[in-house]
Design a protein around this nucleic acid. Structure first.
Length: 597
RNA sequence: GCCAAUGUAGCUCAGUCGGUAGAGCAGCUGUUUCGUAAACAGCCGGUCGCCGGUUCGAGUCCGGCCAUUGGCUCCA
C-alpha cells in the first residue's frame, strides 16, 4: 500500500528517489515504459515495462546512474498541465495515458476514486514533477532538489513481478524495490534489522533446531513436526486446552472428511470450492476433506433440541483442515495447505452476545500474553455492501465487538465495509520482538450458517429462536503460531516452552554414572533434560547446547559429583556456579511455573 | 496461478571454456579423559531436483516438469 504523505517523514525523500530511479532506468532502456512509483514502508518502488528481464547487475548500474543524477543537484520542478498537454507529454507512455484518463475522471494517480479531497468537478488537477531530463506525472510532494538526498543512504533491494494496477488479468511489469533513509547510519540500521530478521527466520531455525520440515515426497505446504517442534506444540496445546476447559469451553473432536451434502448445505461448495481438495468417491457417495470445522460443530449443536437455558455452548477443538492454496503463496509455517486451528464456535442468545465477545477477547489476550506476546493491534471489520442476515443483528454484533475492544483499551483500526458477507469480525494482530505484525486471533460473527443449517433454540416463550454463532481462533493455526513464536524468541524459548530445558554435560566419562542419576532425578521432577554422552570435550558440548539454545547447561565434574551438585550455565553465557541439585530443580520449576522468560 | 532467481553429500557451500565430483561441519572408527562456545587422526558419504534433447562426451548448453526463494495476486 502506498503510504500517506502527511504522516510519513520519509515520503518526499522516497518519492523523489522513485523518480530518480525511473530516470536512471529510462536512460538504460530509452524504449522502456513506466507505470507508477510510490513510496512504501521502508522505501519505494517503481514498476516498468521493459524489453528484457532485469538482472542484479542492472540494479548496480541503475544505482550508479542514480548517484550521478543526485550529484547534479537538480531541482524538482512542479507544474500544472492541461489534459491535452499531459496527453502530448506522455504520448509514448501508455500506462501514463491510462492514468491521465483516470485523472480526468476524478481518480487519483493510483486509479483510486477520490472522495472529498477538493478534486474539482472537471476531474483531478493534472500535475507533473521534473528533475533533470525526466518529467513524471505526479501529485507530489517532492524534495526541493536532488542534493537533499544522501547518496549513501539508499539501496536497490530486489526485482519482482507485479501486475499493472494489481490486477492479475493485466500485464505483469517489473518492479524494482529500493530502501531509502536520511543518512547512512539509518540505512545500516535498517539493513541490520533485515539481517536480524533473516537470522530468526522460522524456516532457518526450524532446520537448525530440528523442529519441523517439509518434504517434497509428502507435498508442498504440508508440515512434518519433528520431536522437538512437536514437543513445543504439545506444550502449547496442553496449556491452551486446559485454559479453554477452565474458561467454560467444551472440548470436541470431529472427523477430517464429510459428505458433499454437508458442504452443500454450508455453502462451501458454492463459494469456497476452489480452495477445497478434490472430492473422493466412497461407496458411491462423495466426500470432501474439511477446509473448516464449523459444519461439524454445528452438527454437534443440532444433535439435541436446545433450550435457552443451555446457552451459551462453546465447542472447542484443535481442528486440522486442508485448504488448497496457490503454490506461489506458500511460506514456511505461516502459509500452508494443511494446518490445525485452535477453533471454537460459540452458540448463544442475542442477549448473551456482549458478554461472550468480551469474554472471547479477554481470553485471547490472556492466552497470547501467556506466551510472551504483549503488543496487539485490533482490526474491526464492519458490514460490507453485500451481506446476509438482518441489519439490526449486524449492528448489535458490531457494537459488541467495538465495546469489547474499547474495554481492553487496545489500539484498533476500523475497516469499514471490510467484513465478510456473513458477519463482522475482530482480527487481532500481534507485534513480535522485531515489531513485525502477524495476524493470529480472529473473532467472527456468522449470520449465514445458523440460517443455512436452520439452527434454533427454544426460548422462554416456548417458541424456536435463531441463536447467534461466533467463530473464533486464538492462536489461529498451530503452524503459524509456532512460526511466530520461533521468530519472536529467535528460537531461545522460555524455559516452560523449551523442548529441551537442560543439557547435562559430564566433563569426563568418570562422571557418567552420576550424570545418569542427575538425569533421572530431573526427569522425575518433570523437567525435560538431555545427557550429552558424546565423546567431545566439555567446550564442544557447551557449544552444541548453546547453538541449540538450550536454556540451562548442567556441568558435572569431579567436584560436583562429590558434593551432589551441578554447575549451572545459562544460554546467555552466565555462569551461576555450582549449586545443590535440589536448588537447581527448585529454581527451574519456579521458572516454569511463572512462565518466566 | 503469474514474473524473476535458485536447486551439487544429512547441513552450509565451491565447481573456470563441456572432459567424468570437491571443502567445512555432521556421521562412523580409533586415540585423547579434558572445568564454561569447536581435541587429533582416519573412514564413510553424491542418479549434481526429475524427464528428455544437443554432443564422442553434460553438474555445466537447450526444452519440459517439480520444488524452493523474493515479489504480485490471493488468504470469503
Amino acid at each position: 500500500m502506498p503510504v500517506n504523505p502527511n504522516d510519513d517523514p520519509y515520503y518526499r525523500l522516497r518519492h523523489s528517489l522513485a523518480h530518480v530511479m525511473a530516470q536512471a532506468v529510462l536512460e538504460l532502456f530509452p524504449e522502456g515504459k513506466i507505470a507508477i512509483g510510490p513510496p512504501v514502508e521502508n522505501g519505494f518502488y517503481y514498476d516498468f515495462d521493459l524489453p528484457r528481464p532485469l538482472t542484479p547487475e542492472d540494479l548496480a548500474e541503475i544505482e550508479a546512474r542514480m548517484r550521478r543524477i543526485i550529484s547534479g543537484n537538480h531541482p524538482f520542478v512542479y507544474r500544472v498541465v492541461s489534459a491535452e498537454e499531459a496527453r502530448e507529454l506522455f504520448r509514448d507512455q501508455p500506462y501514463k495515458l491510462e492514468l491521465i484518463e483516470g485523472l480526468i475522471q476524478g481518480a487519483d494517480e493510483y486509479g483510486e476514486r477520490q472522495e472529498g479531497n477538493g478534486a474539482p468537478a472537471g476531474g483531478t488537477v493534472i500535475s507533473t514533477y521534473r528533475q533533470d531530463t525526466f518529467e513524471d506525472l505526479c501529485r507530489g510532494p517532492h524534495l526541493e532538489h536532488t542534493g537533499q538526498i544522501d547518496p549513501e543512504a539508499f539501496k536497490l533491494m530486489s526485482i519482482a513481478g507485479a501486475y499493472w494496477r494489481g490486477n492479475e488479468k493485466n500485464p505483469q511489469l517489473q518492479r524494482i524495490y529500493g530502501t531509502a533513509w536520511n543518512n547512512r547510519a539509518e540505512l545500516e540500521q535498517y539493513l541490520w534489522r533485515l539481517e536480524e530478521a533473516r537470522k530468526r527466520d522460522h524456516r532457518r531455525l526450524g532446520k537448525e533446531l530440528d523442529l519441523f520440515s517439509v518434504s517434497d515426497e509428502v507435498g508442498p505446504g504440508l508440515i512434518l513436526w519433528h520431536p522437538k517442534g512437536a514437543m513445543i506444540r504439545v506444550i502449547a496445546e496442553d496449556f491452551s486446552r486446559q485454559a479453554h476447559l477452565n474458561a467454560g469451553y467444551e472440548w470436541v473432536f470431529s472427523p477430517h472428511v464429510g459428505r458433499a451434502h454437508l458442504w452443500e448445505t454450508s455453502g462451501h461448495l458454492d463459494f469456497y470450492k476452489e480452495n477445497m481438495y478434490a472430492p473422493m468417491d466412497i461407496e458411491g457417495d462423495t466426500y470432501y476433506v474439511k477446509p473448516m470445522n464449523c459444519p461439524f460443530h454445528i452438527q454437534i449443536y443440532r444433535s439435541h433440541l436446545r433450550s435457552y437455558r443451555d446457552l451459551p455452548r462453546r465447542y472447542a477443538e484443535y481442528g486440522t483442515v486442508y485448504r488448497f492454496e496457490k503454490s506461489g503463496v506458500l511460506h514456511g509455517l505461516t502459509r500452508v495447505r494443511g494446518f490445525t486451528q485452535d477453533d471454537a464456535h460459540i452458540f448463544c442468545r442475542p442477549d448473551q452476545v456482549e458478554e461472550e465477545i468480551g469474554h472471547a477477547l479477554d481470553f485471547s489476550l490472556y492466552v497470547l500474553r501467556s506466551f510472551g506476546l504483549s503488543e496487539f493491534t485490533a482490526y474491526l471489520s464492519t458490514r460490507p455492501e453485500k451481506y446476509v442476515g438482518r441489519a439490526e443483528d449486524w449492528d448489535r454484533a458490531t457494537a459488541a465487538l467495538e465495546r469489547a475492544i474499547e474495554a481492553h483499551a487496545l489500539p484498533y483500526k476500523r475497516d469499514e465495509g471490510g467484513g465478510a458477507f456473513y458477519g463482522p469480525k475482530i482480527d487481532l494482530k500481534v507485534n513480535d520482538a522485531l515489531g513485525r505484525e502477524w495476524q493470529l486471533s480472529t473473532i467472527q460473527f456468522d449470520f449465514n450458517l445458523p440460517e443455512r443449517f436452520d439452527l434454533e433454540y427454544i426460548g422462554e416463550d416456548g417458541q424456536p429462536h435463531r441463536p447467534y454463532m461466533v467463530h473464533r481462533a486464538l492462536m489461529g493455526s498451530m503452524e503459524r503460531f509456532l512460526g511466530v513464536l520461533i521468530e519472536h524468541f529467535a528460537g531461545a524459548f522460555p524455559l516452560w516452552i523449551a523442548p529441551v530445558q537442560a543439557t547435562i554435560i559430564p566433563i569426563t566419562d568418570k562422571q557418567m554414572e552420576y550424570a545418569c542419576q542427575v538425569r533421572q532425578h530431573l526427569t522425575d521432577a518433570g523437567l525435560r533434560v538431555e545427557l550429552d554422552d558424546s565423546r567431545d570435550r566439555m567446550q564442544g558440548k557447551i557449544r552444541r547446547a548453546q547453538l541449540q539454545k538450550v536454556p540451562y547447561m548442567l556441568i558435572i565434574g569431579a567436584r560436583e559429583q562429590e558434593t551432589g551438585a551441578v554447575a549451572v550455565r545459562t544460554r546467555a553465557g552466565e555462569d551461576l556456579g555450582a549449586m545443590p541439585l535440589a536448588a537447581f530443580v527448585e529454581r527451574a520449576l519456579e521458572e516454569v511455573r511463572t512462565r518466566a522468560g
